[in-house]
Design a protein around this nucleic acid. Structure first.
Lengths: 303, 303
DNA sequence: CTTCCAACG
DNA sequence: CGTTTGAAG
């Protein structure tokens, strides 16, 4: 889910002015809300001599389909990595052009169900998979890398599911444990959490707030949990901080042409420790990047 | 599996001279064997004033994919048939242009696993699904229509499976029961069996006989069963009777580009009662019809 | 290699 | 609606 660059969506050549995603689809947009234009609503380019790092997170919803779509040739891949499973090998090596460090984890309980990875140019000081002890269901939902100045967490928060069957687990087990885990890490270094957090925090973060009050991802419980476990404990939603009144989504369901009509949700975040939040130069969303029901989100961090 | 016509593969406009399927792929073809050219190796067209009937049988290996492929629009279909399941409805009505009588059966034990149908311009005198009592596994493998002068059976014989796990069932239960059932019917009228019989009878019927002696569809057991249950009991393999030395296949596995190299099997047959065999004007194979790993096979019957 | 289903989102 | 797996051929 995380890389420090994505080939087809560099910030520089990002093309969009007055495109569909700048349109508000709320029936009753509140006063002051504006659409999101990632071309014009970005800060000035960061100075070349300012040491910085670019983070990009993307829920790709199926790597095989994505790689097929983007015309990757999974066949002419070198044998550099020593992995057992052919497809994983192909996927890894295809994405790894120029990246020497990649860290993958996936669901072992239900194959193909979930998984996360971090691909990085910079070698981390340490790597950790899962939440530690309480990561009981081994669904490959978390990778933690330790860098000099911060921890980077790539996470895929459990979906509460049809009929909200998994809502209790999601709140009581996952969100709580993740918050605790982040606070633990924070004692040694600032923390940056990114990924699909499976929650649209506020009304501005979803196209139809009224109609989704009992939909997984926008229940009272999940939104409250988002606050108590993360925001109230000192983690900053950097996109929202930078753009307090901007409607911007990172997910559009496939089911009703949501992308075309911009009926989306903001589910993909960067949450960072307060102590590092002033170092964030930019947080941005790349809504025109296709190939998944989610689009990538990015962050530029001054070092 | 059975229809009296197939749109894209009429006998009249069937185009092929010196095409790949005329090539023998046997490593050691026996003396006198020739390739099959359905354009030149057919009898003279049947006289227009000779009353006749055309039967066509096709294992389509997935109707949804086929319909998609052939650009059917499953949406603008009428509500003529009163079926519950939408897709079945769409499929039926799409295939039914001009056919008032269609008879479908499918596996209820494993959905999407197997099924057969007969689509006919002529209304049958009676219809029967399965083998009767012994059709215990309800896999939708047989439809019987009664016409004035014969019974027509569309059949999908069980594959013996990987590791020949189902070979005993296939032989002892299925083939035996089917043979008995056909002999029963034959007491009142001649019988025509068609479909994927999942057996390449002789060496001429498979591209690599030596290498497939333990492959499902060419085991000693299946070939013997084909003889004892059908041929020895008086049913005539009409294609082979008409073309004793012709190498012609009706199936090419997807796995190793079998269609391109004509590495095929003859698995689809017409077996008819001796009493009606002299009425068979032509039996033919349509190897250039794509969209499935099997191609259609046809028969013209004088009435 | 290609189909289908079921589960999941 | 679109993805994945697994079974089947």
């Amino acid at each position: 889910k995380v890389s420090s660059r994505i080939t087809k969506a560099n910030v520089a050549d990002y093309p969009c002015v007055d495109e569909p995603w700048t349109v508000l689809t709320h029936k009753k947009p509140q006063k002051g809300w504006t659409g999101y234009n990632p071309k014009t609503m970005r800060p000035p380019p960061i100075a070349a001599d300012t040491l910085h790092m670019k983070l990009l997170s993307w829920n790709v919803n199926g790597l095989r389909a994505l790689l097929k779509m983007e015309n990757f040739s999974a066949l002419e891949l070198s044998k550099r990595e020593d992995f057992d499973e052919k497809d994983v090998n192909a996927i890894r090596e295809t994405l790894l052009q120029g990246y020497d460090n990649s860290y993958w984890t996936c669901s072992v309980s239900k194959l193909g169900y979930s998984g996360t990875a971090i691909i990085s140019r910079i070698k981390p000081l340490s790597v950790r998979y899962g939440l530690g002890i309480s990561d009981h269901d081994s669904e490959g939902r978390l990778v933690t890398l330790e860098f000099d100045n911060f921890y980077l967490l790539s996470c895929y928060v459990p979906n509460s599911g049809d009929g909200l069957k998994r809502l209790p687990y999601r709140i009581a087990e996952w969100d709580t444990s993740l918050g605790n885990y982040m606070k633990d890490l924070e004692q040694s270094k600032p923390v940056i959490l990114t990924g699909d957090l499976n929650c649209a925090h506020e009304e501005i973060d979803i196209f139809n707030p009224a109609g989704n009050k009992r939909s997984a991802g926008f229940t009272e419980e999940e939104r409250k949990s988002f606050e108590t476990n993360f925001l109230d404990r000192g983690f900053v939603d950097t996109f929202r901080k930078q753009h307090p009144n901007v409607v911007a989504y990172s997910y559009w369901g496939y089911r009703h042409g949501g992308r075309r009509t911009n009926k989306g949700w903001r589910l993909d975040y960067f949450l960072v420790s307060e102590s590092i939040s002033e170092k964030v130069h930019d947080t941005y969303i790349l809504p025109d990047v296709g190939g998944s029901d989610h689009c990538p989100v990015g962050l530029i961090l001054k070092l």
